[in-house]
Amino acid sequence: MYQWDFGILWSYRWLFLNGLGVTVGFTVVIVVLGLVFGLFGAFGSLSRFKPIRLLALTFIEAFRCTPILVQLIWFYYALPILAGVEMTPITASALALSLYGGSFYSEIIRGGIISIDKGQSEAGAALGMTPGQSMRRIVLPQAIKRMIPALMNQSIIQFKNTSLVSVLAVPDLVYQSQVAAHDSYRPLETYTAVAVAYAAILIPLTIIVRRGEKRLAVSE
């Protein structure tokens, strides 16, 4: 019978905290950047101009339909050879994860916008609004309300996806715990603790999201 000893992890606490800091910071960066890419992708795919629509759809499908692990490795190893762009592991993984997340955010944002009844933008147009004004004043305020639960959900997935950056030696929580596991010869305790750490952050977040969904359902 295996003898569990979690006490041994205490001596690696700074390593874990450090890793957790990188994981959380990384998540913030890729969620924000991802939303920016998502906005471009969504509005691009709704554009009146066909070349822009095609460009946006190519971006969305390229990143949505390939595995994130492959994208990470490709951005770090293949892009420098193809484009002559040398990137640090952190830049490469931030870019890959933001674009990957952005492709999903695009679809969420696009879906939110087209879910708003056409009569709403017609009413705006009939008042004399330009398409931009009716998007800002009429469609988006209603669409954002509908998007928020799905955007939160995707961001939670993004938080977990950051664990993959350890393959490029970015010192996130998973990478640091690999270090701790090798050093202590205690991989079972280490990875159990890491799993608990992810869950401890995400479970409260999911509860908040669920409450938010209920509140939105009431106000509709």
């Binding site: 009569g119 147009a125 009939a126 008042l127 004399g128 609004m129 330009t130 009429i138």
Partner: peptide
């Protein structure tokens, strides 16, 4: 178009209130 539409009012079958 927007400027032109501002001079006409329209009322819809399904109200289309915001």
């Amino acid at each position: 178009l927007a400027k032109f539409r501002a001079t006409t009012g329209m009322v819809f079958q399904h109200f289309n209130l915001f």
